[in-house]
């Protein structure tokens, strides 16, 4: 699904050259739920931006669902983002002036679906996150957890192969965090590849595989559990400790 080879990302200012990623290698298979952790400044966000085609790489190769993204122009990158990737942001990034229906509609319009198809997908996606009854509400009228669920619906409506989640529970309390994580796990079960960036080690255990980034490189490549049945949220005791940690950080 995602294949990064020898990626370097260098930020240059007049005085300083920062290697945000160096010789970064990573493969994520279709259907996997991978969590990415690392301390502040380790390069997590840079990895996320590059994986999500939000930034270009300085050197290396990156294949997204078999497509070599190096050298694509803005339009091609935008199209690829729109079709392949669903984004979930820490601060939800809903558009405050648009109601829920219109928010979920945003990526679908860029895709060019007709009105009927968009309506079907929006209703289905909002149904899936349990907010179909509140389509005409504005984001400000919802709780944080509900907003994040709308954002997930927005990510799902385009039926992407790959969900990229950036601290999706970082701004939520424990109960809401738990609901969102359960939703993500369900989505993954239905076959969508998920890469989730977090700095919460406990939350990182929710995935099938955890990757640690330190100083712009993949440092630790540990497999928590290859069997999703036994992962954190399936076990009530582990789940409790995880959500507590998430809440204390948030």
């Amino acid at each position: 699904m995602l294949k990064m080879q020898q990626i370097n990302k260098i930020y240059r200012t007049e005085l300083v050259e920062t290697h945000a990623l160096r010789e970064f290698n990573l493969s994520v298979n279709e259907g996997e739920f991978v969590t990415v952790t690392g301390p502040s400044g380790s390069g997590k966000t840079t990895f996320l931006n590059i994986a999500g085609l939000l930034e270009e790489i300085s050197q290396g190769q990156y294949f997204l669902d078999g497509v070599n993204v190096v050298g694509l122009n803005d339009k091609e990158r935008s199209r690829l983002r729109n079709e392949k990737i669903g984004f979930i942001f820490q601060s939800f990034n809903l558009i405050p002036d648009l109601n829920l229906f219109e928010n979920v509609d945003v990526p679908l319009r860029y895709r060019g679906f007709n009105a009927k198809e968009r309506k079907r997908r929006i209703e289905q996606a909002l149904e899936q996150v349990g907010l179909a009854a509140r389509m005409k509400h504005l984001p400000a009228q919802l709780s944080g957890g509900q907003q994040q669920r709308v954002a997930i619906a927005r990510a799902l409506a385009g039926e992407p192969k790959f969900l990229l989640a950036d601290e999706p529970t970082g701004n939520l309390d424990s109960l809401m965090a738990r609901q969102v994580m359960e939703l993500l796990k369900n989505i993954n079960k239905q076959g969508t590849t998920i890469v989730m960036v977090t700095h919460d080690a406990a939350l990182a255990r929710c995935g099938q595989r955890n990757i640690q980034i330190v100083d712009g490189q993949v440092c630790d490549f540990s497999l928590y559990d290859k069997n999703p049945q036994a992962s954190a949220f399936e076990n009530p005791q582990t789940a409790a400790s995880t959500t507590t940690t998430a809440a204390s950080i948030a």
């Binding site: 999500g52 199209r79 558009i95 945003v106 895709r111 927005r154 385009g158």
Partner: peptide, 16 residues
């Protein structure tokens, strides 16, 4: 600014 970035992330081209 943030909304524009979000729209871009969701697939808007510069032209959009």
């Amino acid at each position: 600014r943030k909304q524009i970035g979000t729209r871009r992330a969701l697939g808007a081209s510069k032209g959009n």
